[in-house]
């Protein structure tokens, strides 16, 4: 380097990552919508389902807790993460970050890590509240498994959200697509899973993101032994993460124009 008085050294990556994580965490903490979607909405579902009745209205307690967990992951992934990313791209926040010496993978990883950590924390809270509300006694192993499934669920919905942001540039279009996608995924997973739409839809529902996750959550909370259905659900989730994350990374643009 030939200059004097000015900074010419490459900044340390550790400090950059810590700064990104800290700011992404603050952004999430200051974003009331994200917190509501991640934590409060699932708890509202749990509590609302028990009010006025001794028994769960939607079905077995494990199903309701599984639904609450899945809904929390789905909404925070498709609305919280996806819309925040689309908005930041639209207004130039991502472009501003991109001209710093922080590698682009670090900028995205920080966001995903903070979102996943929030999802895991929310899932632990929901499982504890659900266990108390429904009088379940869960072993430490079941808690750990529930956290592992939550991690998988967070990865599924974040990668679906990433694929949406990768394929669609317009923020308003992403907003609309996320809403439609959420309704479709929920209906498919819930209604299709009941069998009232026929056996074909039931099979499709079992392989859908919501259906697969609810299967894994239900079997975890019921302490059921591992079944072929669980294997299929796990494979489906891994498949969604692989395909959607690849699409989301491959076609992602940092600038909406």
């Amino acid at each position: 380097m030939t200059n004097t008085g000015v900074n010419t050294t490459r900044p340390p990556l550790g400090l950059a990552l810590r700064s990104l994580l800290r700011s992404d965490f603050l952004v999430l903490l200051n974003s009331k919508t994200s917190l509501f979607l991640s934590i409060l909405l699932p708890i509202v579902i749990l509590v609302a389902n028990t009010v006025g009745k001794g028994q769960s209205r939607l079905g077995g307690s494990s199903l309701v807790i599984g639904l609450a967990l899945t809904l929390g992951l789905l909404t925070s992934g498709l609305f919280g993460y996806t819309l925040a990313l689309a908005h930041d791209r639209d207004v130039g926040v991502l472009q501003r970050l991109r001209i710093t010496p922080a590698p682009t993978w670090m900028i995205m990883t920080s966001r995903v890590l903070v979102q996943v950590a929030t999802n895991l924390l929310a899932s632990v809270i929901v499982v504890i509240v659900g266990a108390i509300a429904y009088g379940l006694t869960l072993s430490p192993g079941q808690y750990l498994l529930a956290i592992a499934v939550s991690l998988l669920g967070a990865a599924v919905f974040l990668s679906i959200g990433q694929a949406v942001v990768g394929l669609v540039q317009s923020t308003s279009a992403i907003n609309a697509i996320s809403r439609v996608l959420m309704i479709l995924l929920l209906l498919l997973g819930l209604l299709g899973g009941t069998g009232i739409l026929g056996d074909t839809m039931k099979t499709i529902a079992a392989w859908s993101p919501v259906g697969a996750l609810m299967t894994l959550f239900a079997d975890t909370l019921n302490a059921s032994s591992w079944s072929g259905q669980d294997t299929n659900a796990l494979l489906a989730c891994i498949g969604y993460v692989t395909v959607c994350a690849t699409i989301g990374v491959r076609w992602f643009r940092w600038n909406s124009r």
């Binding site: 900074n7 400090l15 950059a16 700064s19 800290r22 970050l97 710093t100 010496p101």
Partner: peptide, 9 residues
């Protein structure tokens, strides 16, 4: 503080 950290300050 964010941008300072990104530039190693």
């Amino acid at each position: 503080r964010l941008y300072a950290g990104l530039y190693g300050v």
